[in-house]
């Protein structure tokens, strides 16, 4: 089943546009700060894909999200917390998990990310199994990319989820490129056919209009939630930036047409002056957050409810 983008005249909610822009300017800022030597470690930005978690968030607001290496948008759409995320990446006070996780290993109530591809799907099955058993009405949502479908754990999890009717929603951000490898060089067949092989519901969404995405995705999410039918929701999207930093192997001729399809340009044309004002306000706000976080002291582990962190240490 494929749903294509139609014409939607209603402008998106201002608060949604603000989140979209927050993610866009956050990611742009990260790349700039890396370039200036103000950040270290690694990062993977979701430039071009921001609309996916923003569109889905109202449909999954109380559900557990398992994110991946390209997860800043997933986090920001859920928590609207650029300061906490930047502090996490920079190791500053107020970090999401005290700077121990960094860009791609975030942990917060109802949210966990890992950079190891596909490994969160079996975990989603366990979480979903709990919700099925307790009748909580909640589901587990796992974000993956197209490249993730090379990993065996994906299929172990799909098999279990379908076999046991577990409320798991797999959201695929299919951006056509796995780091530097285009889909045609890394995937046989299609994600749709793979889902079908497990009897798992599948829907492809190609547009980026938030209202339309929500209308299309809502029945899929509802079936996962109410009928415990696992589903795969594929967003055919585009990665505008590098995989990480300065490692884009695509030519300018390849990337340029992708910008023409970007939601940012489309919304700008559609909303005009109002969009420009919002864009500038959010850009300035993200910049202000960056300066404020940069000035904070280093992150420290704090006692957890009177109980000091006590990692099990091997050796020593």
């Amino acid at each position: 089943m494929t749903a294509v983008q139609g014409d939607t005249n209603a402008p998106p909610e201002t608060s949604d546009v603000e989140v979209l822009l927050t993610i866009r300017h956050f990611e742009t800022l990260l790349l700039r700060m890396f370039g200036e030597g103000r950040l270290n470690g690694t990062t993977h930005t979701c430039l071009g894909q921001e609309y996916v978690p923003v569109a889905l968030e109202p449909l999954i607001a109380d559900d557990f999200v398992l994110s991946n290496h390209r997860g800043h948008g997933h986090y920001l759409a859920r928590f609207r917390d650029p300061a906490g995320l930047l502090a996490e990446i920079m190791g500053r006070a107020g970090a999401v998990c005290s700077g121990v996780g960094g860009s791609q290993h975030l942990h917060r109530d109802g949210f966990l990310s890992t950079g190891v591809q596909g490994q969160s799907l079996p975990v989603a099955v366990g979480i979903g199994l709990h919700h099925k058993r307790t009748g909580s009405g909640r589901i587990a949502v796992a974000y993956v990319g197209d490249g993730t479908w090379g990993e065996g754990a994906v299929y172990e999890a799909l098999n279990m989820a379908a076999l046991w009717r577990v409320p798991v929603l797999v959201v695929v951000e299919h951006n056509g490129i796995a780091q530097s490898t285009p889909t045609r060089l890394q995937m046989a067949g299609s994600i749709a056919d793979r889902a079908a092989a497990f009897g798992v519901d599948f829907l492809e969404i190609t547009g980026h209009d938030l209202t339309e995405i929500r209308e299309l995705a809502a029945p899929v999410v509802r079936r996962v939630r109410e009928e415990h039918r696992p589903a795969v929701l594929q967003f055919t999207t585009r990665r505008l930036g590098p995989h990480s930093k300065g490692d884009d192997t695509r030519t300018a001729e390849e990337v340029e047409p992708l910008w023409a399809l970007d939601w940012h340009a489309e919304l700008s044309a559609r909303m005009g002056e109002e969009f420009s004002r919002l864009d500038e306000r959010v850009r300035a706000e993200v910049q202000r957050v960056a300066e404020e976080v940069d000035a904070r002291p280093p992150a420290e582990w704090e006692p957890a409810g009177g109980r000091l962190p006590r990692p099990v240490v091997s050796g020593g």
């Binding site: 975990v123 709990h130 098999n159 279990m160």
Partner: peptide
């Protein structure tokens, strides 16, 4: 009784543990 798939077994146990079980 799980399917054959040790990543699935341990991974789903992790999810269950996160949800409060002791797998």
């Amino acid at each position: 009784d799980s399917p054959l798939g040790e990543a699935g077994i341990v991974g789903s146990a992790i999810g269950l543990a996160m949800a409060g079980y002791r797998p």
